[in-house]
Design a protein around this nucleic acid. Structure first.
Length: 703
RNA sequence: GGACCGGUAGCUCAGCUGGAUAGAGCAGCUGCCUUCUAAGCAGCAGGUCAUUGGUUCGAAUCCAAUCCGGUUCACCA
């Protein structure tokens, strides 16, 4: 049991004994003591005053006395400040802990709980290579899996590959039309990138073909459309041409144009300047005389004008979408999808060939990232699942049929909407598959929990999925959990493939590793390393920096990926922690295996110095931190902890008094102190290594 | 419009199951390498915790309202 847990338990016992109140350890609030007061942990006694019927100070005094008398091994002393009971923990508690834990290479690992958890993550599409957004997903999924394992769960890492559908056909079609038989071998290109290039090629043809259709629509010529779509297009066109609406849209465009003109001489993205001034009223990009004019312009940009501008944009988007669907190349892609579903041998063969290229590419990327899976699922095998479950649901009355034969569930009582689960023609929608796949996974593993690592834009989807499964009475239902994470944005905003701002995963990794190599060479501390050792070190540092950067932020928050900061090696970064580890290892290298072995029977009995105590204390919290990270499914908890630990060790290491290192290991003031500090150093190195391992990050012996 | 998420230092983020004077990192400014790795350490400066009200011994944290930003509410996946 952790020290904090022991304190809570003892405090609860104190309250029970002194006031005869049913108080549990969970009701006790314990904080680390503020540095300006004596002690390590503090019990907040305000909640006890209710039944002590004494002032907070007196209550604290009473409880402190009881604790010191009944738990002398834990509480060596105490002091009271207002309602805060500051406890000085007995040094023996700390020295016993270091003695027991310092050599444990698997520190933190909990015994098996006998529970199974599936973590589904990565889930790439086979039409494009991985990008920055996938990296957050992959690192999160992997790290959460490791954290859960450390907490004693049996974890199944699953990857559900999206290997079918219209987007896959797009790459296939473009390859067929334009590749002249190119392969990864013939071009020397990584398979996933080759296929991705043809996806991009398809999109550019699609753009070329849809532009004339869009122009015709804007000119009032709807001859490309028929039926319902013709009606819809007509409506959109009419909406766009309402006189007052048009006037507002034009006005907004004029205002933006003039702002842009006024800011011309500033050497920066004009788009950013415009958004700064419009969204944030930040005038810093303009000359004093221009500011008056800008003020006038902003006043003209009324909410109505802005709303119309936005609405116009939406209408244009819809026209664009409808037009894209009327192109020749889109029609061809749709035919190909039908052929695929019908099992056309030629299409299936092409599909298999191209997918195999992609898998080879993904395999290489996963390997470099250090990511793996226990179970692969493929949508081509699962996309038809779920229909039978829908049938069952219909019979049970969970679902209902509409006039056009489509099947729905009514979730309005749960605050949601009606949701379609099967189309009128009997074909599946996205959620149909997920219903079927959830059952399949459960049949395969009977896990207690099933975690989906998926971006937060799908929060609604997973809420619906869980509700449906619960209403169906599926045994897997209550274990479904959505580990929802925020989007990764770039300093100028979201990544957009249309604007070419998508950050490719392979490129990014390469850049990180190259930068790590440059820093390392500049410092020149590992000149004796072999080629192979250097290569591995660069990978460790480069990937460490990137993983740490993406994992240090709370998953549920969206994050900004700043390329410059991500490759930084100072401060709250992966390399800082790796460096701290390497530094400790270099201390430990001076001692023999025999020296280290002798530590196991050693327990320090002298008083502990402040930073010795502090370091042991932080190390001792690792178990609680790990449990919290598991509970919250949040690697950032570990990242913050690892940084605190490394930082504290660095202070311990560098602390000097009158020109001498206060906490020197090698030149310790006594043999006993040397042994103690060796234990502390060894423990800290192990805890750092383990916490980084749970983030999927390796730590070097030297750097 | 409904639902959900977010708003903390110039920037990026901790803290949010209520607790003491709100913390890091980066950027800026000062110092510290003949001594276990300076990818480091010590320090200075920087805050109406979006706003307003409420709950109470105590609110960045809980509740309500408002403002701002995002996501979603597809017979897309």
């Amino acid at each position: 049991m952790s020290v904090v847990a022991s304190i809570k338990q003892a405090a609860a016992a104190a309250v029970q004994a002194l006031y005869q109140q049913p108080f549990t350890a969970a009701d006790v609030s314990v904080n680390t003591t503020k540095p300006e007061f004596e002690g390590e942990y503090t019990i907040v006694v305000f909640p006890f005053t209710k039944f002590s019927r004494q002032k907070p100070e007196e209550t604290a005094q009473t409880i402190g006395t009881w604790l010191a008398a009944n738990h002398p091994g834990l509480v060596a002393g105490f002091n009271v400040v207002k309602g805060f009971l500051n406890l000085s923990i007995h040094d023996q508690t700390w020295t016993a802990f270091v003695q027991g834990a310092h050599h444990n290479a698997l520190v933190g690992q909990q015994p098996a709980k006998g529970q199974k958890v599936m973590v589904e993550y990565s889930s790439p599409n086979t039409n494009k290579p991985l990008h920055l957004g996938h990296l957050r997903n992959n690192f999160l999924g992997f790290s959460v899996s490791e954290i859960l394992k450390a907490n004693g769960y049996e974890v199944i890492k699953a990857n559900l590959v999206n290997d079918r559908g219209i987007h896959i056909c797009k790459s296939m079609l473009a390859w067929q039309l334009f590749a002249h038989g190119d392969t990864p071998e013939s071009t020397g290109k990584k398979g996933d990138h080759l296929v991705g290039d043809y996806y991009v090629h398809f999109e550019s043809i699609l753009r070329d073909q849809s532009e004339p259709i869009i122009s015709r629509v804007l000119e009032g010529d709807f001859s490309d459309f028929d039926g319902e779509q013709h009606e819809r297009i007509t409506k959109l066109h009419t909406a766009l041409h309402k006189p007052e609406f048009m006037a507002n849209v034009e006005k907004a465009a004029q205002i933006r144009k003039e702002i842009k003109h006024l800011a011309r001489n500033v050497s920066e993205e004009t788009k950013e300047i415009i958004s700064r001034v419009i969204e944030k009223r930040d005038f810093s990009d303009f000359e004093a005389d221009a500011k008056i004019r800008i003020g006038q312009l902003l006043a003209e940009l009324t909410p109505q004008v802005k709303a119309d501008e936005e609405k116009a944009e939406k209408i244009h988007d819809e026209i664009k979408e409808l037009s894209r669907n009327r192109t020749e190349i889109m029609a061809q892609a749709k035919i190909m999808l039908q052929q695929w579903e019908a099992g056309n041998p030629e299409v299936r063969a092409l599909w298999q060939t191209m997918n195999s290229w992609v898998y080879e590419g993904f395999e290489a990327t996963y390997k470099r990232l250090g990511i793996n899976f226990d179970k692969m699922y493929f949508e081509s095998n699962t996309y038809l699942l779920g229909k039978d479950v829908v049938e069952e649901g219909l019979r049970k009355g969970v679902f209902f049929k509409k006039a056009d034969n489509s099947v729905w569930i009514d979730l309005t009582a749960d605050g949601l909407d009606e949701k379609l689960v099967l189309r009128g023609d009997g074909t599946s929608v996205y959620i149909t598959q997920d219903i079927g796949t959830a059952r399949l996974k459960y049949d395969d593993y009977q896990m207690n929990q099933s975690i989906y690592v998926v971006a937060d834009e799908q929060n609604y989807h997973f809420k619906v999925l869980k509700l449906i499964m619960q209403k169906l009475g599926e045994p897997s239902a209550d274990g479904i959990a959505h580990l929802s994470y925020g989007m990764v944005e770039l300093p100028h905003g979201r990544m957009k493939s249309r604007e070419g701002t998508v950050v490719d995963a392979d490129d990014l990794v390469e850049e990180m590793v190259t930068t790590a190599a440059r820093y390392t060479e500049e410092l020149g501390k590992v000149k004796d390393f072999t080629e192979e050792e250097l290569r591995e070190l660069y990978e460790t540092i480069g990937l460490g920096a990137m993983k740490f950067f993406l994992l240090k932020v709370d998953p549920k928050k969206k994050m900004v990926f700043n390329p410059e900061e991500s490759i930084d090696i100072h401060g709250f970064t992966g390399p800082f922690i790796q460096y701290s580890h390497a530094r400790i290892r270099s201390i430990l290298r001076e001692f023999s295996a025999g020296d280290m072995l002798a530590l196991e029977s050693y327990r320090h009995t002298d008083a502990l110095l402040p930073m010795e105590k502090e370091l042991i204390m932080i190390n001792e919290q690792f178990g609680d931190v790990l449990a919290e990270a598991g509970r919250e499914m949040s690697p950032s908890v570990i990242a913050n902890y690892a940084f605190l630990l490394a930082q504290t060790f660095n202070s311990f290491y560098a602390k000097k008094e009158s020109g001498k290192y206060t906490y020197s290991v090698r030149d310790a003031e006594s043999e006993d102190k040397r042994k103690l500090r060796l234990q502390i150093a060894s423990l800290t190195a192990n805890t750092i290594r383990q916490s980084m391992k749970f983030l999927g990050i390796r730590v070097p012996e030297r750097m």
